[in-house]
Amino acid sequence: MDPLERLSSPAPEFLDRLAASTRALHWLVALPVLLLLLTGLTNFWPELKALHVGGARVFAWLHVLIGLGFAVALVPSVIAILMRRAARRDARELLAFGLDDYLWLQHRVLRAAGLRSVGPRVGKFNAGQKLNAVLSAAATAALMGTGVVLGVNYWSKDVFDVDLVGAVFRWHTVLSVLLLPLIAGHLYMALLNPGTRESLRGVTTGRVRRSWAERHHGAWADRVREERRAGEG
């Protein structure tokens, strides 16, 4: 937050942004994926990969265990969470991609190229957040599908043909390599980038500063105000 803003708003006002169910869904996916990514990356680090207790290599074992646990727990958890209206509404908004989203992306590209551009008003989620959500979800689902095959193969080599396993292993790697920049960008914006860091508060406490929301999600901030007014009236 820049110093000027701090001076002009000594007591920040907050807007409710993400309901508990939406936050639960985020962390339910984020934590296992992060652990899977870290343990999976040891594949490219032979010294770490070789670490073993008895015949079990620590990181491979953890990776398979977390992955299979995640695969078993995810579908019922997602169903349970999507029973909540707030999470359903957020999911719908994340998946709705319209012309304004395209214009917003174009606006960001033009601005990044140093050109003058005026973007559309942004709703609850901007096109970058939507793209990130869709691509991450698709990559995670595909990683889970291929990962289950590899996880089963970890315990028994008699279930799948080796050539199938080899092909699936390759796709698992391709997908994780594709997911990596998405996660890196996501972490950068959530933890480091000053303009977007406020969203971390949203996904942990559920609330964000009104001033931030008005600048970054103007259409959504307006909508919240109107809904609040309607609620009071």
Binding site: A60, L150, N153, Y154, K157, V162, D163, V165, G166, V168, F169, R170, T173
Partner: peptide, 9 residues
Amino acid sequence: DFHCVEGWM
């Protein structure tokens, strides 16, 4: 074809 027990080939 080289097959590793880890699954890659």
